[in-house]
Design a protein around this nucleic acid. Structure first.
Lengths: 338, 338
DNA sequence: TCTGGCACTCGAACACGCAGAGTGCCAACG
DNA sequence: CGTTGGCACTCTGCGTGTTCGAGTGCCAGA
């Protein structure tokens, strides 16, 4: 176990490096932090920290920079979550309150998060899997063509065209609509399949084919939506990375276009709290030099989706975590209200 | 007017520069193109071209690179649109045919375009302004709360919550739904307002407030959708820009996040054909070192939206224009089928 | 009008030297 | 034993000077 002072030295290194983006040496450390010891002592401590793998030197005779392991220790033991200032909180709330629909909520959230953290923001649309059905609507577009519209309690709407095997009368349509709704409204998506399985049987032989088709389209929609949507913003912040440009930024941009990768990444967020994945802790190779801070959000204690930011491992963790948490909280509130 | 050979020299310069990304000199030109004259002659021609503003030297004693004006001439007079190969066409069609809904069509289109041109692709969702109404649905969520769902002929669905000033019975609801649909189905969005203006009058006094609210929400939806949605892809291709990185890429990323800017940009696409905006021809400053190739697409001769790519001014214009045009054509077909 | 030749210019690449920052180690001190 | 000051060493970064080569402009001649 590292002594108290050595931890303090590590904290100082992380803070300075995050601020200056330059390797930090022993002398500068003692000047900028009240460690109460001389540079020589700090040097000894640094040697130990390096041996343990918490810090490293880019080249001989340069200052030290934290390793992924060092950041990990910093996040776990040395840093709190920095709460936002009251004006910041107020600004968040005002900004989010202006949203008119779900797209707008997500859009505003992503811009807000990007601006607040000055990093790339990723927001997942509220998940359908956890949602409940608010309404199912069936519309007749042509004699043998229906449109199925599904409305969720998070305000999301999905529509599908259905080609019927045989013409379907208005009366049957109204009947199906009524029965379908009475069975599934208020139910969770995952609970729906068994509830509608026997529906075709109660219809006339002529209509059974169509009813089955409608049902399978409905179930398909639920499943397909497990592949969920994302919104991304703040990519211009990537240019702040600094030195070794194209090499760093390219794989990140590529990763951001791979929705699957991002969803997996967000998915790793711990159910309860916030997840911080640092550098190589990210399974996806392109993000090995970035950290991902993610958290779930939702209304009424239930997590309906995740959001987070992607930035350089050299980021202001307390501030970022504070911003991410605060935004998630307010989005949850907004969703609960609508 | 420039002589035939000088135009030929300009074409050669553009082609070589696009290929090599390096300033091209007189000697290299004569080696790589059968111009039939000596380097010295080419030098004289280059001096003229430079005087006229078609090419420039980065520094004295470097080769020449085309200016925006040079590219303009190249695009207008010297280059055709390079048609895609048959396998390419087939690949496009196969790829787009797999789409299941509108989101998917747009998503696939953007990926396709980015991959084909190796540049940033921008695709606008089919516009509502030009669309017609396929169906309006009203659902009762609570005694004084409705949901308005609007379905367009391009398969797009928009929903809005409506808080009623007074409770609204099922009978009135059905009545309103029927009358509304009989008036607006098949109509263009822009034609709708006058058609529904007198609707409230035909309802009971108690319900007029609600009917007005519903109508204004509907009209609002139409207007709001003038602010249309976009999908963007292929941003990782920006890293191919090369040398002077952060300076070039940053404003482009910023522009890409400003949907308003992009919409305006696409909007400039000529009704009939393709638009190519080169460098400083772009009104938006951040895109001064890029070119935008855009074109409208739609089903049945009608343009419902635009799509295009953003890339360095040093791009393969014939190839890019060919790809953009081909993709637009196939997307139009797909939309017409669904 | 085109061509070959020639002097000139300028940027890229490389070597050199210097200053500054930072380290590791050691001996001395409390 | 932990801490401290001192010292020699090792790098990187930067500015300078030099060379090399590509490319130009101009001119005289075909």
């Amino acid at each position: 176990m590292l002594s108290e002072r050595r931890l303090e030295v590590l904290r100082a290194i992380v803070q300075d490096y995050v601020g200056t983006e330059e390797p930090v040496g022993s002398k500068a450390l003692t000047e900028r932090h009240r460690l109460g010891v001389s540079p020589a002592t700090v040097r000894n401590d640094m040697a130990v920290l390096e041996e343990e793998g918490y810090i490293a030197q880019p080249h001989t005779s340069a200052g030290r920079i934290p390793t992924d392991k060092g950041y990990r220790l910093f996040v776990d033991k040395l840093a709190g979550v920095k709460p936002l200032s009251t004006p910041e909180r107020r600004a968040i709330q005002n900004f989010l309150d202006g949203a008119v629909d779900l797209d707008d909520v997500v859009g505003r959230t992503v811009r807000l998060l990007a601006q607040l953290t000055r990093q790339v923001a990723v927001v997942q649309y509220p998940s359908l899997t956890r949602s409940t059905v608010r309404h199912v609507e069936l519309l007749s577009l042509a004699p043998a063509r229906l449109m199925l519209v599904l409305i969720t309690d998070t305000g999301r709407v999905e529509q599908r065209l259905v080609d019927c095997p045989s013409p379907f009368g208005e009366a049957s349509l109204a009947d199906l609509r009524a029965r379908l709704n009475s069975r599934v409204v208020g139910r969770r998506f995952t609970d729906v399949p068994p509830l509608v399985q026997d529906l075709p049987e109660s219809f006339e032989a002529d209509d059974r084919g169509t009813v089955s088709t409608v049902l399978s389209t409905l179930l398909e929609t639920l499943v397909e939506e497990a592949e969920e949507r994302l919104m991304i913003g703040g990519t211009a912040n990537l240019t702040r990375f600094g030195h070794d440009f194209p090499l760093t930024i390219r794989p990140v941009l590529e990763a951001l276009e791979e929705q699957v990768v991002l969803l997996k990444l967000l998915g790793e967020a711990n159910e309860s709290g916030m997840a911080v994945r640092i550098g190589h802790e990210n399974a996806y190779e392109g993000l090995n030099s970035t950290s991902v801070v993610s958290v779930g959000y939702g209304s009424g204690g239930e997590t309906v989706a995740k959001l987070g930011v992607v930035g350089p491992t050299r980021m202001d963790y307390p501030g970022t975590m504070g911003a991410v948490r605060a935004v998630a909280r307010y989005v949850g509130q907004i969703l609960a209200e609508s």
